[in-house]
């Protein structure tokens, strides 16, 4: 095994700024996608347990569609297929005028994919909360909207903190798939450093450490949020979700 170590390389320019830019793109892509996915997923998950049968079915299919196609294929669909099948003017806009098309489409794709997974989690939380609180809330004269907004969703979020946390970690990992449509995020940049310098160990170690730091930070945030919730008289994580 003849490998020439050169740990200094990752601190040299331009490689250091490549890696840092990659980190920035990964964080931006993931957080933006999460900001879309969380409300959307909550909405879909709530509607799946709501009073309208047709909407329940529709939301079930929404979840199925996004869960059963690999993320990379979804990326291709959004980036290569979507602009072709929409009306010409929109397609032209997407292909020619959108400022950063890879990032935008990648973010959209990641957001919808994650929203379907969040919808599943929220639904399981709503089901675990059971019919008791729902009936109690409705019996006290709340509308469905109020029952979800003030009783059922707060319960569901408390019950599903652990799976929501791991979904938040997963979005950072999943964001790397966007490199297949040309988004230069952290994994892509470390690969590029490797191709330019042949110092694969150093480049990939740098990326690994940065990803580990991200998930460590996320776990810290999730822990703090969780403590906050249980201080506020929540159910905390004592009631585990199966």
């Amino acid at each position: 095994m003849s490998y020439r170590w050169n740990w200094g390389i990752i601190f040299e320019q331009p490689y250091l700024s490549w890696l840092l830019q990659g980190l920035g793109v990964t964080v931006a892509l993931s957080c933006l996608a999460w900001a879309i996915a969380l409300p959307l997923g909550t909405l879909v998950g709530s509607l799946r347990t709501g009073p309208y049968r047709a909407i329940r079915l529709l939301c079930a299919w929404y979840v199925q569609a996004f869960r059963n196609v690999p993320l990379i294929v979804q990326m291709f669909l959004w980036f290569f297929v979507f602009p072709e099948v929409v009306p010409k003017a929109v397609g032209f806009f997407l292909k020619r005028q959108l400022p950063i098309p890879e990032f935008t489409m990648g973010c959209l794709c990641l957001a919808l994919y994650t929203s379907a997974r969040i919808a599943e989690i929220i639904r399981s939380g709503l089901e675990a909360a059971g019919n008791g609180p729902r009936n109690a809330a409705l019996a006290s004269g709340m509308t469905y909207y109020q029952a979800y907004r003030y009783v059922l969703l707060p319960m569901s979020f408390r019950l599903t903190m652990p799976p929501l946390t791991s979904e938040f970690l997963a979005i950072f990992k999943n964001s790397s798939v966007a490199l297949t449509i040309g988004v230069l995020e952290l994994t892509a940049q470390s690969h590029q450093v490797e191709s330019f310098t042949f110092q694969g160990f150093e480049a990939f170690t740098a990326a690994t450490v940065l990803y580990a730091l991200i998930s460590w930070a996320c776990l810290g945030i999730a822990g703090a949020v969780n403590r906050q919730l249980s201080n506020a008289g929540g159910l905390g994580t004592e009631v585990a979700i199966k």
Binding site: V177, T187, A207, A212, W216
Partner: peptide
């Protein structure tokens, strides 16, 4: 579990 699969494949 903290790194993406793509990175593991590259590794």
């Amino acid at each position: 579990r903290s790194i993406p699969l793509v990175l593991a494949v590259f590794w």
